[in-house]
């Protein structure tokens, strides 16, 4: 089998699971619809709060409505996309700890991919809907901006999955790493979700020289804040747009808020 055929197969494999998961979610309609709407509303509430906050107490460096909306939109959409397709990412630690990997190991598909895509988070479509909706309605982007938004959503989603897999895999060494994995991801995201201008001193050093978060920050920076909004922040200011794509959502999803 040549490489392109394999790729095609993977595509069909992922698509197949996505379809089956959607079908499964639709079965529990009340549950599904209510979860999607609740998540949508939840995101809206947060956005409203932070919009209100930053309007009343603006950052010295200038942090406006457009930036807040864009970041929330990309963040939610990226996280939503990640957990729509890879719903098991945040459950990986418990799957490993309970020996449920055994179910996937004998099957003729890549184990990690198979585990990740075999469940869909029921709330995730709500996040995607919120992200796209908020961006379209409030920012009213040009087509080129929308294209960039989608690109950021996808790269953000890849990052979310990658980091979650990394931290949840601690379960291989620690046994019960569910709590720790969730908290580590939450920690990482927490630092990336607020404007870096707010951090100073040793934390800043830790943030920017820690390998993984630097990678994360780089990608986040490449993402939307400076590029998408019509009146983008000054591109020279590196710290500026880091309020970014990954997600406060990840935090909210994995911690008892």
């Amino acid at each position: 089998m040549n490489k392109s055929v394999i790729k095609q197969h993977y595509g069909r494999f992922i698509w197949g699971y996505l379809l089956a998961n959607t079908q499964g979610a639709l079965e529990y309609r009340l549950s599904f619809v209510s979860q999607v709407f609740a998540m949508l509303l939840n995101d809206v509430i947060w956005l409203v709060f932070w919009l209100a906050y930053f309007t009343r107490f603006p950052l010295v460096a200038g942090w406006g409505r457009t930036e807040v909306v864009t970041l929330w939109a990309v963040t939610a959409a990226a996280f939503g996309l990640a957990t729509t397709i890879c719903g098991n990412a945040t459950r990986l630690a418990s799957i490993i700890a309970r020996g449920q990997l055994d179910v996937y190991l004998p099957l003729p598909k890549p184990v990690l991919l198979h585990v990740l895509i075999s469940t869909m988070s029921l709330t995730a479509p709500g996040d995607v809907a919120f992200g796209l909706g908020a961006y379209l309605v409030i920012i009213q982007p040009r087509p080129s901006q929308l294209g960039l938004f989608v690109l950021c959503m996808i790269t953000g989603a890849v990052l979310v999955v990658a980091f979650t897999v990394l931290t949840q895999s601690l379960a291989f060494w620690l046994g019960n790493a569910e709590g720790l994995g969730a908290q580590l991801v939450a920690a990482l995201i927490n630092f990336s979700t607020y404007p870096t201008v707010i951090f100073n001193g040793i934390v800043k050093v830790a943030l920017f020289y820690d390998h993984s978060s630097r990678l994360y920050c780089l990608c986040a920076r490449a993402a939307p804040a400076q590029l998408l909004p019509p009146n983008a922040a000054r591109p020279g200011n590196l710290h500026h747009g880091l309020w970014c794509s990954g997600g406060r959502r990840l935090l909210l999803g994995s911690t008892p808020l």
């Binding site: 379809l19 959607t22 079908q23 639709l26 079965e27 309609r29």
Partner: peptide, 13 residues
């Protein structure tokens, strides 16, 4: 009664 397939499920909505 659960419908069969996506269309069946949507119809049962």
């Amino acid at each position: 009664v659960r419908g069969a397939g996506v269309r069946g499920i949507l119809r049962s909505y």
